[in-house]
Design a protein around this nucleic acid. Structure first.
Lengths: 143, 143
DNA sequence: CTTATTAGTTTACAACTGTAGTCACAATAA
DNA sequence: TTATTGTGACTACAGTTGTAAACTAATAAG
């Protein structure tokens, strides 16, 4: 799988990727139908997005003959991780904790997810610093 | 403070907001200098961004006379929460847990942050479902 | 007061996005 | 083998974003 870090997937493109990831692989017809039902998009719109994703090498065309099959080239997990990292990279490091807290509160998580997060946190607690420094401006500040 | 949900702050604009949030309030000169040092931007660029933020009502101009003071209208915490929610809204609900896990692992968190997250998780565990359903396509799927 | 300097407003412009129409060609049906 | 249709490629076009120059109005310096 190609490095998801190098590909920027836009909001509309995400919708298509989600469908492809979930289906595993799909024909354009299947995608067009799914996108029409999900987002009300015209066939053209889905085609364009699919095309852009191919150019970005986030998706690849398979099967030599005409009704091609489309498959993801970038993984869902990696892409999501990259998008999340990208977001947090733009925010104040000092606020990451409370932002994560907000996300956890507003999302549905399974028992397994929670157990996993608890394990990660327990481990992380061992080496956690007392304070995280604000990194918004040159020099030390507190935001 | 105005509802951060309604304002879309772009990547470049975020940089300016971070500076304003950290400084609490600032003159354009201060912002221009900070942005030049941080991002290497020309004065014009910062001015434009500041302007757009004013139009979006994310920032307000204060003080009647010429060297105006600029202050945030939207809060940092709310804006970050909105941005994070926006991101997770576009992703498969089923994958939120592992994405959060990745974020936690890659970010620096203080002891207090961790304790807070642990408390939230403990509470959330009480009512957590066994499974979270994939919401990428119509009908139940697993992605 | 006149001039120089700074701060604020307008305009610019290419790249990227969201959304979609049209054209061309391969596959299929007649 | 020709007409039809499904599928993929190319074109379109307005709005947003990143980046910045040019212009104008206010203030400070002389």
């Amino acid at each position: 799988m190609q490095d998801a870090k190098n590909v920027t997937i836009t909001d509309s493109e995400w919708m298509v990727m989600r469908a492809i990831w979930t289906m595993g692989h799909a024909t354009s017809r299947e995608l067009i139908d799914a996108m029409n039902e999900l987002e009300g998009w015209s066939a053209s719109t889905t085609k364009t997005l699919l095309h852009r994703l191919i150019q970005k090498q986030a998706v690849a065309q398979h099967g030599g003959s005409r009704p091609f099959t489309y498959k993801p080239v970038v993984g869902e997990k990696e892409s999501m991780a990259a998008a999340a990292d990208d977001l947090f990279d733009h925010m104040c490091a000092m606020r990451a904790g409370s932002t994560i807290a907000g996300v956890i509160q507003s999302r549905e998580l399974s028992r397994a997810d929670i157990a996993n997060l608890q394990a990660i946190l327990a481990e992380k607690a061992k080496t956690a610093p007392e304070e995280v420094q604000c990194n918004c401006l040159p020099g030390d500040q507190t935001c």
